[in-house]
Computed example of a mutant assay.
Amino acid sequence: MKTRTRIAVITAAGIVAAGAFATTFALANDSPAMHGPGAGRGSDPGAVTMPRGGPRDGGCLAVPAIVDPSGTLTEAQRTALAANAEEEKLAHDLYTEFANRYDLRVFDRIAASETAHLQAVRTLLSRYGIADPTADQAPGHFATPAVQATYDRLLAEGSAGQDAALEAGRTVETADIALLRESLDDLTAPDVQRVYDGLLTASQHHLAAFDRHLSR
């Protein structure tokens, strides 16, 4: 199924694919460890300082600098790039909120990582002349109604307790991995491929971190 005709709809049980792709998740940049939603917009994401720590506590390696040449994106791939920006914003905003509620460093670390991820995607949006759906959106607010509904639902689920918040994090990262793998299908643009590959590795680290906390 082409990415422009998919929606990732998150439920308590996981992810159900249906309808229009642009309604996946997202991340806004209000982590105290970084510089806010507009940090480095249009700058080289390789210059971003990632949080201390590593995969075991939710940190991850920096997303590679965008040094590869641009390519050609189909309309579906342009839609997917905007959807990935909203996913990164959703993840950041959700984890930041959970970090404020629960004494778990994993949420702080992953939220800070998501800040750099969004910056990289924003750089690509600018490079390809695609409108940024996360621009000027306050924490917890999203341009796409389905993304807003997903954030509100996951926030409510994660408010039930620390384990519920970790499960919400697992849901987000599982959906993120599926979205990135789908976004990579038939993609030929070298710069977008490199960023997606970096984001995919990061999401796998984040998912593993949530799994470790839930297994304790």
Rank of each mutant, 00 (worst) to 15 (best):
I15D: 03
V63W: 03
R56F: 08
A112C: 05
F21Y: 09
A65F: 04
D103R: 01
A112P: 01
V16R: 11
A39W: 06
Q204L: 05
G169R: 03
A83T: 10
Q204G: 09
Q162D: 06
Q162S: 07
Y128M: 04
D132E: 09
G158D: 04
A138M: 01
M34A: 15
L61H: 14
A22T: 04
Q119L: 07
L214S: 04
T96K: 10
T5E: 15
R170T: 05
L94M: 00
T96S: 14
A65Q: 01
A175Q: 03
A178G: 11
G42I: 06
E86K: 01
E75G: 12
A178Q: 13
R6Y: 09
G169T: 04
D197Q: 15
A116P: 02
A189P: 08
R170I: 05
T144C: 09
G129Q: 05
A208C: 01
N84W: 10
V48T: 15
M1F: 12
L155E: 02
A33E: 13
L118C: 08
A209C: 08
H92S: 15
H213L: 15
A178Y: 03
E97I: 08
A39G: 07
R4M: 11
A189C: 06
E86I: 01
Y128F: 00
L184M: 12
T49Q: 11
L199S: 04
T49Y: 06
G129R: 06
P55C: 05
I66L: 08
Q119C: 07
T24A: 14
T74P: 00
Q148V: 12
L187C: 03
D108R: 01
A91C: 04
A156F: 05
L81Q: 02
V67Y: 07
G58I: 05
A28V: 14
G14A: 08
T24C: 12
D152T: 06
I110A: 08
E75N: 08
A135E: 14
R41A: 15
Y102H: 02
A22S: 12
A20Q: 09
D132W: 09
R4G: 09
L27T: 13
L94A: 08
M34S: 13
